[in-house]
Design a binder for these strands. Structure first.
Length: 769
DNA sequence: GAGTTTGAAACT
DNA sequence: CAGTTTCAAACTC
């Protein structure tokens, strides 16, 4: 699809205001009746920082990096509101099928070419998608969420992966799955337009909204809506904390301090129509009066709050704007005046993050020291640390994040979790490695947890989601689901807990405490466990690889190795079953493993080629279960050729060298849980927090097996070269350090440096040179 | 779906 | 630190 030039967008928008169409739109009711459709709540991890929840929900998926946050908003039926020619258009037809959508979209793009512009709406029976092409937009995909339709997700994965440079293409780019997104967005834009105060200075208004380089964040998930709702329901309180918003909004939306649109279209399953409730005037008044000067950057559009929609909407909008002021502006303010407590207090982590980004240099020192507050972490915690460092009072982020709303699906940010994730920076997921050309982009992974979904609530609202989840094993299964009965999901036995995610609906756990409601307990428990083993929540599988070959590395050689951090201890399974964490994680065993009779198909402990006659037999078994024989063979070959027999960490090139090969795991197509863990923790955070994946990526290498001590050093900015990081678990179990075998590879060095350096650039939405 | 096996996690 | 117990996933039937 053709995407109008980004820079054109602003202009276009401006034009919008003046255009008759715009007026027309404005005249329309801001919100059209919409049937809500169960939506996948998940928030995709972004490549930008987004608020992690204490535990992110495991069911996140499809992470894509693009400058544009895109969320799927499956609107059941969305009624097209406007079609405009000048502006470009909105093609709407209520009942267009996807095919129709495509067509429409296509047409749109054509028109866009002509006009350069902007919003186009297409409706699809099921999904309305939107695409906005602000210069800098974040794309937020929600695919992979529990209820998310895998097909779409997959599709998007393929289609949406975009190189930074190609971001612009997004808007225009529409594929079936993706296209719909575009449509949705467009629709939302319309709504926004409608909602936005007309009376205001159009110039200022739109400028503030979308204009140059604005980042657009679109929220479609019901959960978000709910979360907002909760916040909004509260009386407008100046003291509202940024964190409150943060819990709902992805940091990414904020971190740049750019304009942000928040479009919330559906309350899951809700069939209410809101349109009538929203009154533009009210909103306009609110926004304009107070924020005019500030040029509200955040526009929240809710399409369907059932009750009191009007009020809520207004308040939401208002707050959103407020938030904007606090965040974006605050960040700046803080920079300038750390003294400004009034704002500072209200400023939330977002600001902090931004600050961090800008002042990364500060991070190192303080992070570590305090770093370890609840977990350690760069992200919010880091920010917190930073704040403290600056003498700014740190706000208890966690408290703020928690959404009190019952129904809120909110994205909860958990301080501890975030910290941990950051500190541990897990390795990228295999996919990431594979797909990312340079590791810059975290790929989305269905398994990535980014959002907590109130399972119960969620279910209630959207049984369909549940169904979908169940129906889409590949995707959903990637997500953790526990079945704990006695551990209350507060032990590492619990996969959800271990993965740093809250238990959600699909879990069959009993007496589960691993829920946002028990955040305190969860955090406490985590602390306790971490005190025992700082790496307890680190990804089990550590991958140290850069997707990008490093200088000096043999191109043919897989740059990375992946190992189980602790190594396995298998005795009977021969490391050929998922009992074996190494195998489960799709990595070979290393000398760090204490396994007996290792036959790990991904690489034996002794470094020998994985496949032997015996193994083959075994593998046959595996194959039956879904492991492609070829894959295994391939693996073997690679191992043989590449592994260093003597090297402690036998590399498992598997993932790096080839595109993601389905692991031999379950016939169900379920990704190894280990992977999930890794992915969820690392990739997600990396992307979310740092925005630039690559930086994290690199970091991840280091973090992978870096003990806290070292980690601290690193964070502190200790630049002393670390040739090989030795790690050991508290209990004496060995932790392989994959990187070691690489020797003092450039990657390592590079990664190290990156740790600090990369952090800084907060999610700058602007393209990276 | 119930029962068994397995190995990590937790405990002593 | 080693041995034991507990636990839940993986697996089998």
């Amino acid at each position: 699809m053709d995407t109008p030039e980004r820079n054109q967008i602003s202009a276009t928008l401006s034009k919008f205001e003046d255009s008759p169409v715009f007026n027309y739109i404005n005249s329309l009711s801001p919100i059209k009746p919409v049937k809500s459709v169960p939506i996948s709540q998940t928030f995709n991890s972004l490549s930008f920082s987004s608020p992690p929840s204490v535990f992110t929900s495991p069911h996140v998926s499809c992470l894509k990096e693009s400058r544009f946050l895109r969320r799927h908003i499956p609107l059941g039926t969305w009624k097209p509101k406007v079609s405009s020619e000048d502006v470009n258009k909105v093609h709407t037809s209520e009942e267009e099928t996807l095919a129709d959508s495509k067509r429409a979209h296509h047409n749109k793009s054509e028109s866009q070419e002509n006009t350069e512009k902007r919003a186009s709406i297409e409706l699809s029976s099921e999904h309305i998608k939107f695409s906005v092409e602000p210069q800098q937009s974040l794309k937020y995909d929600t695919c992979g969420s529990p209820g998310y339709d895998p097909s779409i997700c997959d599709h998007e994965d393929n289609t949406l992966l975009e190189l930074p440079g190609e971001a612009a293409a997004d808007a225009g780019y529409v594929q079936e799955g993706c296209k719909t997104d575009s449509v949705e967005s467009e629709v939302h834009l319309q709504e926004i337009c409608q909602m936005e105060p007309k009376s205001e200075d159009p110039d200022c208004y739109w400028d503030s909204l979308i204009p140059d380089g604005s980042d657009m964040l679109i929220f479609n998930s019901p959960g978000e809506a709910e979360a907002f709702k909760g916040l909004m329901n509260k009386p407008l309180d100046p003291s509202i904390r940024l964190s409150d918003f943060m819990s709902v909004l992805p940091l990414s939306a904020v971190h740049n301090g750019r304009k942000m649109f928040i479009v919330d279209s559906v309350a899951s399953g809700s069939e209410h129509e809101i349109g009538d409730h929203c009154s533009q005037p009210t909103i306009a008044a609110t926004d304009t009066d107070q924020t005019r000067d500030n040029l509200a950057d955040v526009v929240l559009v809710t399409s369907n709050y059932n009750e009191n929609a009007n009020d809520q909407l207004v308040s939401v909008t208002h707050r959103a704007i407020r938030r904007r002021c606090l965040d974006f502006e605050m960040a700046n303010v803080q920079k300038k005046n750390s003294d400004d407590n009034s704002k500072g207090s209200s400023s939330t982590s977002e600001s902090d993050e931004r600050n961090v980004a800008n002042e990364k240099q500060l991070l190192p020192a303080k992070l570590n020291q305090r770093g370890i507050l609840q977990g350690i972490g760069l992200h919010l915690n880091a920010l917190a640390a930073l704040k403290e460092y600056k003498g700014i009072q740190i706000e208890n982020l966690s408290s703020g994040r928690q959404l009190s709303l019952p129904n809120s699906t909110s994205l909860q940010i958990s301080t501890s979790q975030e910290q941990q994730h950051l500190s541990l920076v897990p390795v990228s997921s295999e996919r990431d490695l594979d797909s990312s050309d340079n590791g810059l982009q975290p790929t989305e992974d269905c398994s990535q947890p980014s959002v907590y979904m109130a399972g119960e609530d969620f279910n209630k609202n959207s049984p369909r989601k549940k169904k979908r989840k169940l129906e889409t094993p590949g995707e959903t299964e990637g997500c953790k689901r526990c079945n704990c009965k006695k551990s209350k999901c507060l032990k590492l036995y619990c996969e959800c807990f271990a993965a740093g995610v809250y238990c959600i609906e699909p879990c069959s756990c009993q007496d589960c405490f691993n829920k946002p409601v028990h955040e305190d307990t969860v955090l406490q428990t985590r602390k306790q466990i971490e005190s025992r083993n700082p790496l307890a929540f680190a990804p089990k599988v550590i991958r140290s690889s850069d997707s990008v070959p490093e200088i000096g590395d043999d191109p043919n050689k897989t740059p990375a190795s992946a190992r189980h951090k602790r190594g396995c201890n298998c005795k009977k399974s021969s490391c050929l079953k998922k009992y074996c964490e190494c195998y489960q994680g799709g990595v070979g065993c290393s000398i760090g493993c204490r396994c007996e009779g290792c036959k790990n198909a991904f690489g034996r402990k002794d470094g020998s080629a994985p496949v032997s006659i015996e193994t083959e037999q075994e593998e046959t078994e595996a194959t039956d279960k879904g492991m492609p024989e070829k894959a295994s063979q391939k693996i073997e070959i690679q191992n043989t050729a590449e592994d260093h027999p003597d090297s402690a960490a036998m590399s498992t090139p598997l993932r790096l060298s080839r595109p993601f090969v389905p692991l031999p795991f379950s016939s169900k197509g379920k990704a190894p849980r280990s992977f999930v863990t890794t992915i969820s923790g690392s990739a997600l955070f990396a992307s979310q927090k740092l925005g630039k994946t690559n930086s994290l990526w690199s970091q991840s290498k280091h973090f992978q097996s870096v003990p806290d001590d070292e980690m601290q050093d690193i964070l502190l900015g200790d630049t002393s070269p670390i040739t090989c990081i030795k790690t050991s678990s508290p209990n004496g179990k060995r932790i392989s350090s994959p990187s070691c075998d690489m020797g003092s590879s450039p990657s390592r060095r590079g990664g190290r440096k990156l740790i600090l350096q990369s952090i800084p650039s907060f999610p700058s939405l602007t393209p990276h040179p």
